[in-house]
């Protein structure tokens, strides 16, 4: 009897845990999710095959695990449509093997050998026979512009990184790129007395040609631990720093998830509501030096594609 009662009372421990501030049941979807919204770099079968021919180890390091759109010519389609082999216009002896999941096989069979094609997917390299494989996410027969530095989302939205404007934070150790139109709606947070953190607000609903009156803004900021923390010994308390930042800006925010992306960057996500506006905080740690903070303020996420590109392309240079 005593043992049963004891066991029963132990079962209420999860309830106590929830009361203590751990929540296991929050919705864990976020919009600025570069881990699930892959950014595909445009390239050609010729370029990849050429690099593998020159130095296969270096090419493997460069391409393996990356997301690309590879344009080329179809050499062979399997009977079931589960595999497409593509070659380049000048590299025809080697090929790239594209594996199509079930939902793409009917579409694959609509192509013919000799057709041009562009395949969105993730590159893997077979360890044994060193074949280059592409796990296809999407097929496209639309001809692509023959240019390096063009990146796509799966919905077809694309951006030419060469035409983006570069900005820096934290004495140049943080670089990010904005679509050139964003310069028109760029506001320095400190310069225009919008706050005290280093960074910029981009008022996206006021982009040239945009008639939307619903506020939508994206902030890219840098929180420097040395100049912003009351106690510098707390530099490593990343999550508590993030919560202090959120408390300062919008009073509340719930942690949604932390993610390590396919390109190696780790983000912590928080969400909140502020006077009818949805807030999404994304933090990217820069060692013990500080944090990059992205803040997306929206009711309708009309410029999410550009926000994803800006987030994806940010670089931090180690000191």
């Amino acid at each position: 009897m005593n043992t049963k009662r004891f066991a029963l009372m132990l079962l209420i421990l999860p309830v106590v845990t929830v009361l203590c501030g751990f929540s296991f049941f929050k919705q864990n979807t976020v919009l600025v999710d570069t881990s699930n919204n892959h950014v595909y770099e445009q390239t050609s079968a010729d370029d990849i095959l050429s690099e593998f021919e020159k130095d296969s180890d270096a090419a493997k390091d460069k391409y393996k695990g990356g997301y690309y759109i590879i344009s080329g010519k179809i050499e062979h389609i399997s009977q079931k449509g589960d595999t497409i082999e593509i070659v380049g216009s000048s590299h025809k002896d080697d090929h790239i093997i594209c594996s199509c999941p079930k939902n793409l096989r009917t579409e694959a069979l609509a192509y013919n050998e000799g057709d041009g094609i562009a395949v969105f997917g993730k590159i893997t390299v077979d360890l044994i026979d060193r074949e280059i494989h592409l796990e296809a996410d999407k097929l496209s027969s639309v001809p692509l512009v023959n240019k390096t530095g063009v990146f796509y989302l799966l919905d077809g939205t694309n951006i030419d990184k060469n035409s983006m404007s570069r900005r820096t934070l934290n004495n140049g150790t943080v670089s990010y790129y904005i679509p050139s139109t964003w310069k028109e709606v760029e506001h320095s947070i400190i310069g225009e007395e919008l706050g005290t953190i280093e960074g910029y607000q981009y008022v996206l609903n006021k982009l040239p040609g945009n008639t939307d009156t619903v506020p939508e803004s994206f902030f890219v900021c840098y929180f420097d631990n040395d100049s912003k923390l009351a106690n510098r010994d707390e530099k490593e308390e990343t999550e508590r720093i993030e919560k202090a930042i959120i408390k300062n800006i919008s009073d509340e925010g719930d942690k949604i998830k932390d993610v390590t992306t396919y390109y190696g960057v780790k983000y912590n996500y928080y969400k909140s509501i502020y006077k009818g506006n949805r807030l999404e905080y994304i933090f990217q740690k820069n060692g013990s030096d500080g944090l990059v903070m992205y803040l997306y303020v929206y009711t309708d996420e009309k410029h999410l594609s550009d926000v994803l590109f800006v987030t994806r392309f940010l670089e931090i240079v180690s000191k």
Binding site: E193, G195, T196, I197, P215, C221, A230, K243, N248
Partner: peptide
């Protein structure tokens, strides 16, 4: 759950004045 101290920022000045930022977008 409750004993973790909050990290304090150097001052109470707003890192981003959200009201002002949202007004800018209106």
């Amino acid at each position: 759950g409750f004993a973790k101290k909050e990290v304090r920022l150097l001052d109470d000045n707003k890192l981003i004045i959200l009201d002002k930022a949202i007004d800018l977008a209106k």
